[in-house]
Design a protein around this nucleic acid. Structure first.
Length: 193
DNA sequence: AACCCTCGCAACCGCCAGTAC
DNA sequence: GGTACTGGCGGTTGCGAGGGT
């Protein structure tokens, strides 16, 4: 049996207090990131190591960009999601200052709904066969319908843009990156640099 | 004013891959 | 090669805020 990542007894859960944040920041400034399992004890925090890591990565890190996503960031997320699927950490890696959790939340709360309203299946970026909403057909007509994948029209003219892989019918809604298409040298992803 | 509902976001959970022994 | 440990990831949950009735 796998041991739990931490002793659940005596560890705090839920929202972090300012004091806890400060302890974590101070400790990482002094000792750097890493060894999350032993960090809570060393830093005097009654938290799980995983919880500390998450708090630092998603909220306390100094290089985090907070606030609304710019339109170009949103476009990039849509494009990357079409290529990579729900690989949020990879997508976030292409968005400086954004975290995987933030991108994931933004996708689920904003972009996903937006695509659905446009008649686009957010899972595979294809137009719905039968529109889930009455106005979906007219909305989708604003897109370039020549594309199998329904990217915004201004991407369709890019001569360098190619799909990582074709969707083989309905059993592959979230194409996973292969070692080949994850390669920095792959022209598919070079487009986004 | 009180209640209900929806939404956005922070945080948790469980699983998996990599690594050390 | 097998096992244990750790970090990282994606899915999901829970809570607070804000809007509507």
């Amino acid at each position: 049996m796998r041991k739990p990542c931490c002793d659940k007894e005596g560890t705090n859960k839920g929202a972090w207090s300012k004091q806890e944040d400060q302890k974590l920041i101070d400790y990482i400034h002094l000792h750097g990131e890493g060894c999350w399992r032993s960090l809570p004890k060393a830093a005097g925090l009654h938290r799980c190591g995983k919880s500390c890591r998450l708090r630092w990565i998603n909220y306390l890190r100094p290089d985090i960009k907070r606030g609304n996503f710019a339109p170009d960031e949103e476009d990039l997320i849509i494009k990357l999601h079409a290529l990579l699927g729900n690989r949020w950490s990879l997508i976030a890696g292409r968005l400086p200052g954004r975290t995987d959790n933030e991108v994931k939340n933004y996708w689920n709360s904003h972009i996903r709904r937006k695509l659905i309203n446009m008649g686009i299946d957010p899972n595979n970026h294809k137009l719905y066969q039968t529109s889930p909403l009455p106005h979906a057909a007219s909305s989708s007509s604003r897109l370039n319908l020549d594309l199998t994948i329904a990217f915004p029209a201004h991407y369709s003219s890019s001569p360098t843009f190619t799909l990582a892989q074709e969707d083989d019918d309905n059993n592959n809604n979230n194409p996973k990156p292969t070692s080949e298409n994850m390669d920095e040298s792959n022209p598919t992803l070079l487009l986004f640099q």
